Amino acid sequence: MSSPYFTLKVVEVTHETSDAVTLHFEHPEKQAVSFKPGQFLTLILNLEGKEVRRSYSLSSTPHEAPRLAVTVKRVSGGLVSNYLLDNVKVGDEIKVMEPIGNFCLTCAPDNQRHILLFGAGSGITPLMSILKAVLKEEPNSQVSLLYGNSDEDSVIFKEQLEQLQQENAERFHIEYIYSQPKQACDHRGRMNQSMIIKILERLKLAKIDNALYYMCGPEGMMDEVRHALDVLHVPAERIFRESFVSNKLIEQQQQGQHGDVLSSDDDGEIVTQTVTIIYEGAEYHVEVEPDQTILEAALDQDVDLPYSCQAGLCTACRGKCLSGKVHLDEREGLSDAELEEGYVLNCVGHPLTSDVIIEIG
């Protein structure tokens, strides 16, 4: 099994807005990096004497190989985003983990469908990858984007979006929504249920059978989108959402401060248990204390397992539980089908029995 880690070189830096940049990478040997539109890349950096990892959605598409790109928006007080915006330059090399993620789309030239995208702020990044891929690879498909920002100057990819709209006038439509516009605009305020329904009805997109719906942005915005789609009776299997993890949550995870345990059917008390982990052909026996996750215990014992968000959302640390029982603090990253198959997330997992065996990869 090949290692999930490799190094990429920065070949271009594009300033999208005053607080967002796109980092364009290439493999040093010009190799194409395999990924699906909508997936993310994990950057691994050594900052202030510690290794830190952050996941950023790829804003490029596979047909742009050998280049691939992530777009980073500055977060107030954010260790990694501030470092990337202020320090990274062309020629730098950054260690990464191979692209992963379930928020993705597979294109086929024979598809004839409508892709509806709902984004706000930096939530546009995976949607940008998806929309470019559909426009390039599915000539009979259409794309509509509802994109919320504070004002006109904060729109990431503004020039690219306008160019794509001009080049695909019959297939690509954008509705901009501004909460604090600097000039007159069609939609003022935050994206909400009522606004979404009105826009879709005006565009005659409220009831279409061949549509898929992708949303990414703040949780409140995505809740509004979901409420609107529920009112329009959109089947749940046609709706996909991507949650970005806040810096606060990451810091809580790193400090061992976990949120409320989700209600579950798990029985048993969390006590010290030894977990067997099978990874890259080797077998590890990891002792997990009650206040540790399986991932934290493994890393403490120098078992270099794959991981990224440490919050149960990205699935980088996913493994299959072959025996025993594991409690998960957070389940959003796994589908019902994956849970039924026995998959667990080591970054939010705690062994409940003494016979837990987890296979990764």
Rank of each mutant, 00 (worst) to 15 (best):
E51P: 08
S354C: 09
A228T: 05
A32Y: 04
N247W: 00
Q193L: 00
N247C: 00
T22S: 15
T71L: 03
Q292P: 03
R171H: 07
R331M: 14
Q252V: 00
S323P: 06
K132R: 13
D300G: 00
L249K: 14
Y83I: 06
L164W: 09
I199Q: 06
L116K: 10
G189S: 01
N149T: 12
P290V: 01
H233F: 13
Y214D: 06
E237A: 10
G349H: 01
S18H: 15
S263V: 08
I250S: 13
G220M: 04
E242S: 11
G349F: 11
D209C: 04
F157G: 10
L145N: 08
Y307P: 05
D223P: 03
K248Q: 13
P126Q: 08
S264M: 12
L345T: 10
P4Q: 13
V231L: 11
M97D: 06
L135R: 03
Q166M: 11
V134D: 05
A169L: 12
T274K: 12
Y307G: 02
T22V: 02
L45C: 03
F244L: 04
S246A: 12
A108L: 08
E340H: 09
G78V: 01
D260F: 11
K89Y: 00
T22I: 01
C216Y: 07
S150E: 14
I197C: 07
P37C: 08
C309R: 04
D209L: 09
L79N: 05
C107I: 09
I115E: 07
G77I: 03
N82E: 11
F25E: 02
S60F: 07
V288T: 02
L262D: 01
V21P: 01
V13T: 14
L79G: 09
E330P: 01
L47I: 15
G38D: 06
E29F: 12
H350A: 06
V10P: 05
Y284T: 02
L345Q: 11
L145E: 07
L328M: 15
V356C: 12
R113E: 14
K204L: 09
V348D: 00
L146F: 13
L68F: 07
H173N: 10
A298C: 07
P181R: 02
G121D: 05
A298E: 00
S59E: 04
L229M: 08
E330K: 08
Q31L: 15
Q180G: 00
S3T: 12
I100A: 14
L352E: 03
V271N: 10
I199D: 06
R241I: 13
G259I: 01
S308D: 02
V231P: 08
E137N: 12
Q142M: 03
V344S: 04
A211W: 05
D230A: 15
V80M: 10
Y176I: 02
H114Y: 05
N168L: 08
H24L: 05
F6P: 05
